[in-house]
């Protein structure tokens, strides 16, 4: 029973990692850049959503209408998509053609910059995202006691959103003409441009989609945790990156799969680590290692199978 509960919790967090990981995987697929600032884009999505809701319904609002919540979150996510495009235009585009090290260092600089600009705008304290009444508290399905398995509107809605966005992405990438151009660009940008594909448009779309999904993921993680601050992007960004690598960087279904695996293992770690006896001292292994799950998986996968679970090519195209 407890096992099922942990697993379900892990699934719920995992799909959010997956949503965020899509941003990494798409950008890497197209321009071979680890967009280090993606975690900060997710954080901005959560911050802007919180701000919009605060403006619209008052900072002290206890319950907010569901429609308003959806509208303002969508608005914030669209804006965040714009931030993503802007990030590429300002920081990465001028470096196309220079060394990959320069691009990666720039991405790290952007991450540092955005994180600390967020502190200057929103402060270093904890923020919360207000949700409609009962959104996270009313159980639709409850098995077992107070701490048993419970599924709320929040869980249903993130599952629905995930399924919808995955189907939408599948359709965009596999079935449309533009999606074909995106795939072609990922494989060979020079040849794609010789076919008349506008690389700028492909790259901008990639950043928009990744940032949009990242914003929703960021908002959901923030709701899940109850409160969040400017540093939320660093951790979820790294875990989501681990998920992208685990699934096979460049593969969208892989990112989701990787996110789910990491989410579940993390939840198991939180649940069971303390029951594993520590080899040297009395008591169990510290649950503090929960946060190490993502990194450990990341290192193991890079060592054992750098192309990831669903990746086709070797880890590196260049």
């Amino acid at each position: 029973m407890l096992f099922l509960e942990y697993t379900l919790n892990g699934l719920n967090t995992g799909i959010l990692y997956g949503l965020i990981a899509i941003g990494y995987t798409m950008v890497y697929g197209i321009i071979q850049l680890i967009n280090f600032a993606h975690g900060e884009i997710c954080m901005l999505g959560a911050m802007v959503t919180a701000t919009f809701l605060g403006w619209a319904f008052g900072v002290d609002a206890i319950a907010i209408p569901a429609a308003g919540f959806v509208v303002f979150m969508t608005l914030a996510a669209l804006m965040d998509g714009g931030f993503g495009i802007l990030l590429d235009k300002i920081a990465y585009k001028p470096l196309r053609g220079s060394s990959r090290l320069s691009a990666l260092i720039t991405a790290i600089g952007m991450s540092l910059l955005l994180q600390n600009l967020a502190v200057m705008i929103w402060g270093a304290g904890a923020n919360t995202i207000k949700v409609p009444e009962g959104y996270t508290s009313t159980a639709i399905l409850q098995i077992g006691g107070r701490l048993g398995i419970r599924i709320t509107f929040f869980h249903i809605s993130i599952w629905l959103f995930t399924i919808a966005s995955m189907s939408g992405l599948y359709f965009l990438v596999q079935k449309t003409r533009f999606g074909m151009a995106m795939r072609a660009t990922a494989q060979n940008p020079t040849a794609a441009s010789l076919m008349g594909v506008r690389l700028d448009k492909v790259v901008a779309t990639t950043f928009f989609v990744g940032s949009f999904l990242g914003a929703i993921g960021g908002v959901a993680v923030a709701i899940n945790k109850g409160s969040f601050d400017y540093q939320i992007g660093l951790y979820i960004g790294l875990v989501a990156f681990a998920a992208a690598v685990l699934g096979g960087i460049g593969s969208i279904p892989g990112a989701m799969l990787g996110g789910i695996i990491i989410g579940v293992v993390e939840a198991w770690a939180a649940g069971y680590l303390s029951e594993i006896p520590h080899p040297l001292v009395e008591g169990g292994i510290s649950t503090g290692y929960k946060e190490a799950v993502g990194f450990t998986v990341l290192i193991l996968i890079i060592l054992l199978r750098p192309q990831g679970l669903l990746g086709s090519r070797g880890g590196d195209r260049a």
């Binding site: 074909m180 795939r183 072609a184 494989q187 020079t190 010789l194």
Partner: peptide
Amino acid sequence: RQIFRDLTVEENLRLGAYL
């Protein structure tokens, strides 16, 4: 040649007519 290796033959041809 620089064909798109992970696209089908037909998709490759359709990309030729992209514009």
